[in-house]
């Protein structure tokens, strides 16, 4: 087999996703004079940040051939708990933020234990967690938003601009993406995630403790969920217990559009970032063109089908 040709094809997929983003960008800038406004671009980046951070964690789980449906409402629970720590209990800012992350890790831990040790299918384990997290968010908050108005500095976490013109939320997303990229390609967690997704039995026979590493992978994914929760709360300066449902599907869509295979074994963080940008750009552009929200959903659905079909074609040719 011609190796160079195959290697190029993989890079091609990355280029395709990026090219798709460029095409969408160019299309909307021609279609609408407001699209390229920095204010609007900033809006796109902000909209990308939260789903993007969730998608980073989901990429790790999907690399194993698993799925994480709990990132959306899990993110909400982390927001609410951050609210409890900071607004209700009045804990120091750092403790509250770390607490929010820890709740995310806990969600991941439970997912991981259920998947690895109870051997629940990831779909079921994380579907259950999605419901549990949604319910707990409502119970803990008493179904009412928790406001951070009395927590000085919290809103600045995501809303401030360490780099002038660029909201911190976006900066956090990019830093998180770099961390996720290093995790995926340079640490045992990422290596074993890809290995498990590629051939779980062979990984086990090679002496890797597959169950333990699955737990680790879900915990790391949970940390990203926690981070998304903190960023979301800071952006809204409140924890909204009713939000979150549906975010998991947007995150998964971003991962898949980016070229990570739901079958596992192949994953790309850069692709996920591009995927998340495509999702947000599409929604934003269609809105600017005054396309009704209902039709925006249709358009996003079609893009997902096209992206995944392209991925399958690529894989089919490789086999």
């Amino acid at each position: 087999m011609n190796v160079t040709r195959l290697g190029n094809r993989q890079q091609l997929q990355q280029l395709l996703a990026f090219g798709g983003l460029v095409v969408i960008f160019v299309f909307f800038s021609v279609a609408s004079p407001y699209f390229l406004d920095w204010a609007n671009v900033k809006g796109i980046l902000l909209a990308t940040a939260v789903t993007g951070i969730m998608a980073l964690g989901a990429t790790l789980v999907i690399a194993t051939g698993g799925i994480d449906l709990s990132v959306g409402t899990g993110m909400t629970l982390c927001s609410v708990m951050t609210g409890v720590f900071l607004a209700n209990l009045g804990l120091p800012l750092v403790v509250g933020v770390l607490g929010g992350l820890a709740i995310g890790a806990l969600i991941g831990l439970l997912n991981g234990l259920n998947v690895a040790y109870l051997r629940l299918p990831p779909f079921i384990a994380t579907l259950a967690m999605m419901m549990v997290a949604q319910g707990l968010s409502l119970v803990i908050s008493g179904t009412k938003p928790i406001y951070f108005s009395d927590v000085p500095g919290f809103g600045q976490l995501a809303g401030g601009e360490l780099v002038p013109g660029l909201p911190n939320a976006v900066l956090i997303f990019f830093v998180a993406a770099v961390l996720a990229g290093v995790t995926l390609s340079k640490t045992l967690t990422g290596r074993y995630a890809l290995s498990i997704g590629s051939n779980e039995e062979a990984t086990a026979i090679s002496g890797v403790d597959v169950r333990r590493w699955k737990v680790v992978i879900y915990v790391v994914a949970g940390l990203f969920t926690g981070l998304a929760g903190v960023v979301m709360a800071s952006r809204l300066n409140s924890a909204q217990p009713g939000l979150g449902l549906g975010y998991e599907l947007e995150a998964i869509a971003a991962v898949v559009i980016g070229g990570t295979s739901l079958r596992g074994g192949k994953a790309t963080i850069l692709g996920t970032v591009i995927g998340a940008l495509i999702m947000a750009t599409l929604t934003n552009g269609l809105r600017i063109m005054s396309i009704p929200q209902e039709w925006q959903k249709v358009a996003v659905g079609i893009v997902i089908v096209l992206a995944v079909y392209a991925d399958m074609l690529r894989r089919g040719k490789e086999a």
């Binding site: 062979a202 026979i205 090679s206």
Partner: peptide, 15 residues
């Protein structure tokens, strides 16, 4: 017992 998506070296020294 190989992981097709990993490289040759990564397969040999897995674990």
């Amino acid at each position: 017992h190989l992981m097709p998506d990993l490289t040759v070296a990564q397969n040999i020294f897995i674990g």
